[in-house]
Design a protein around this nucleic acid. Structure first.
Length: 506
RNA sequence: GCCUCCAUAGCUCAGUUGGUUAGAGCGACGGACUGUUAAUCCGCAGGUCCCAGGUUCAAGUCCUGGUGGGGGCGCCA
C-alpha cells in the first residue's frame, strides 16, 4: 500500500515506506536530518548511522537537494514538527542522487525563479499556492453544481473579435484567420437559453502588452450566464459565490495559508456583507469628495506617503548604526554576517519604498483629476477598495465606456447595467459582468457604433429574436482571485506556467 | 505604446568624487559536531562587471545606442 506524508498522523507507531524527494538536509557526524517531500507534504526523517549501517549512511550523506529516495521507517509523534510527526528511518533506497539543484534555500530574484519555474513549483510556497488554487477551482464547481448550473464550455477558436476592443492572438484555421478566445460570454448567453443556468470554465487569451501585477496573456476564466436574472440577481449571485469560495479556502487550506503568511482575519472579514456602490457614489469616493468612515481617499494616500517616508528614514538610521558598528571592527564573524544581511534587507526594502513613493503621488493625481464619465483605471480601483475591508461592487456604468452588449438602465439610459467586483486590500477588479441588452434594435445600434461586423453577430441577434428573456452573467478571473486570496504581489505565481509579455518558456 | 528603476561570482547583493590585484553572504567542495529547523563553526575554489561603440593617461563607475528584466500607466479578468 502506498503511503503519503499527509496521512502520517493517522499511523503513529507503524512502519511505513515513503517515496519522495530530498527537500532539505542537515547533518552531523552520525545523524542526518532529512526533510522529505512527496507532494502531499513534508516530514523530517531522522537517520542514525547505527540504524542503517555505515555504507548506506555515507550514501545518504552524499545526497543533494531534490534527490529521489524511498525511505522506510517508524512514524513517531513529535510535537516540535510541523505535521506533528517525524520518521525514524531504518532503510533508505536511493533512486537518483542529484548534484547542484539550482534553487537553493536562500533568496532568489524573480527572473531566475521564472526561468526555473519547472523546478520552482516544488518549493513550499509555490506548493501552497497551487493547493489553494486547486481548492478554489473545486469550490467553484461545487458552488455552481449545487446551484443547478450546467458546465458548458465556449469555443477557443473564434472567427472574430467578439468585443472588438482588445488585441487578440491570431492563428491559422485551415487557411482562414482565427483568433484565440478572449471571452466565452456571447456563447454563454446562447447556452443559458438552452439550459437556464450555465458556466464556462476555460482558458482565455489577451495579447495586450501589459506589464503589471494583474495581467497574464493566458488565464483561466469562469463565466456563469443565467436566464431570467437581472443585475440585482446577478450581484446577489456574485456575492454568494465569492463568499463560498473564500470560505472553502479558509476551511480547507489552513496550513497553506500559514505557509503563505496570509492574514486570515482579513479574509474572514471579507466574508461580511459586500459594499454596493453605483458609479456616481464610487466616483465621489475616488475623487475624495465623499468620505468613508470619516476618511477620504486623498487623506489615506497622503498618510501612506508619510508612513513610507517615516519608514525610510528609520531604515536609513538603522543602516547607519549597523555600518558604524561594523566599521569599528572586532566583531565575531556570525555577528558581522547578521548585521550585513540586515543592512542588505533594509536596502531592499528602501528600494521598494522608493518605488511606492514614485507611484503614490501619481495615484493621488489620478484620483483627484478623475474625469466623470470615464472608466476606472487600475490605481482608481486600488484607491477605492483600500477604503473597505470587504469586496466592493460598482454598478450602473456610463454606457459609452462599457461593452456593447450591456443592458441600458431603463430609467437612466445614460447608464449600462454592468457590475465590477473589486477585491479588497488593493487588488482591484476580479469580476466583470452585468445584465445583457435584450432589445434587438439597440443592440444593432451598438454593434454599428463599435464598428463590429454585423454578419458575425447574426447568431447572437437570433437570441433576441427567439424567446428573448432578461439575462445576466459575469466573468471571474481565476488567477486574480487566487492572487487576492493568497495575498500575492503578482498573478504570475498563481498559475503553474504563466504566459505573459516576454515569457513563453518554460 | 508611454513613464520610471535596474543589469557585477551558480544565487542574493556591496563596490565612495573614474585610480593599484573587483568584495561579502549563501550555495558547491573538504573538514568538525548525536536533536538540527534557511543549523552552526573552520578551510578552499569560483569573474566576458549584459552587448556594441565613445570620452579619458586610466572605465564596473561617465556618455550614446542596443538587449534583457522589475515597477507603474493605458487596456483589461
Amino acid at each position: 500500500m502506498k503511503r503519503y506524508i499527509q496521512d502520517l498522523s493517522t499511523c503513529i507507531g507503524e512502519e511505513v515506506t515513503l517515496q519522495g524527494w530530498v527537500y532539505n538536509k542537515r547533518e552531523s557526524k552520525a545523524l542526518i536530518f532529512l526533510i522529505l517531500r512527496d507532494g502531499s507534504g513534508i516530514v523530517q526523517c531522522i537517520i542514525a548511522q547505527d540504524d542503517i549501517g555505515e555504507n548506506s549512511f555515507a550514501e545518504v550523506s552524499s545526497l543533494g537537494l531534490e534527490s529521489s529516495v524511498r525511505i522506510t521507517g517508524k512514524v513517531v509523534e513529535d510535537t516540535r514538527q510541523h505535521g506533528g510527526v517525524e520518521l525514524h528511518v531504518n532503510a533508505v533506497e536511493v533512486i537518483q542522487n542529484v548534484a547542484d539543484y539550482p534553487i537553493s534555500k536562500k533568496e532568489h530574484g524573480i527572473e531566475f525563479l521564472m526561468d526555473n519555474r519547472h523546478l520552482w513549483l516544488r518549493s513550499r510556497r509555490q506548493w501552497a499556492i497551487m493547493r489553494v488554487r486547486n481548492t478554489i477551482i473545486f469550490a467553484i464547481h461545487r458552488f455552481f453544481q449545487k446551484e443547478g448550473f450546467v458546465q458548458m464550455d465556449a469555443p477557443i477558436f473564434t472567427g472574430n473579435a467578439c468585443e472588438g476592443t482588445t488585441d487578440l492572438f491570431e492563428t491559422d484555421f485551415y487557411g482562414r484567420p482565427a483568433y484565440l478566445s478572449q471571452s466565452g460570454q456571447l456563447y454563454g448567453e446562447a447556452m443559458a437559453m438552452a439550459m437556464g443556468k450555465i458556466y464556462t470554465f476555460g482558458p482565455t487569451f489577451r495579447s495586450e502588452k501589459s506589464k503589471t501585477r494583474r495581467h497574464l496573456s493566458e488565464f483561466w476564466m469562469i463565466e456563469p450566464e443565467m436566464a431570467y436574472y437581472d443585475i440585482f440577481d446577478n450581484m446577489d449571485l456574485i456575492e454568494d459565490f465569492i463568499k463560498a469560495v473564500v470560505q472553502a479556502v479558509l476551511a480547507e487550506n489552513k496550513d497553506e495559508l500559514e505557509i503563505l503568511e496570509r492574514d486570515v482575519e482579513a479574509l474572514e472579514k471579507a466574508c461580511g456583507e459586500f459594499i454596493r456602490l453605483n458609479y456616481d457614489d464610487a466616483v465621489a469616493i475616488i475623487k475624495g469628495e465623499k468620505d468613508v468612515d470619516g476618511k477620504t481617499t486623498i487623506e489615506t494616500l497622503k498618510a501612506d506617503i508619510a508612513d513610507r517616508e517615516a519608514e525610510k528614514s528609520e531604515l536609513e538610521a538603522d543602516i547607519e548604526e549597523r555600518q558604524a558598528l561594523l566599521d569599528k571592527g572586532g566583531m565575531k564573524k556570525g555577528k558581522v554576517a547578521y548585521h550585513q544581511s540586515t543592512i542588505d534587507k533594509n536596502k531592499q526594502r528602501i528600494k521598494q519604498i522608493e518605488e511606492d513613493l514614485r507611484n503614490l503621488p501619481q495615484w493621488i493625481e489620478s484620483a483627484e483629476n478623475f474625469k466623470y464619465g470615464s472608466d476606472f483605471g487600475g490605481s482608481d480601483e486600488t484607491v477605492l477598495t483600500r477604503m473597505f475591508d470587504v469586496p466592493v461592487m460598482v454598478y450602473d456604468w456610463p454606457h459609452a465606456v462599457k461593452a456593447f452588449y450591456l443592458k441600458r438602465n431603463p430609467e437612466h439610459p445614460e447608464f449600462a447595467r454592468g457590475v465590477d467586483l473589486l477585491a479588497p486590500e488593493g487588488y482591484g477588479e476580479i469580476v466583470g459582468g452585468g445584465e445583457r441588452e435584450t432589445n434587438e434594435e439597440w443592440l444593432k445600434e451598438k454593434i454599428i457604433e463599435h464598428e463590429l461586423p454585423m454578419s458575425e453577430f447574426e447568431w447572437y441577434l437570433d437570441l433576441r429574436r427567439f424567446g428573448s428573456v432578461p439575462h445576466a452573467g459575469f466573468g471571474l478571473g481565476l488567477e486574480r482571485l487566487v492572487a487576492w486570496i493568497c495575498k500575492l504581489s503578482h498573478v504570475r505565481e498563481t498559475i503553474p506556467f504563466p504566459r505573459m509579455y516576454g515569457r513563453l518558456e518554460p
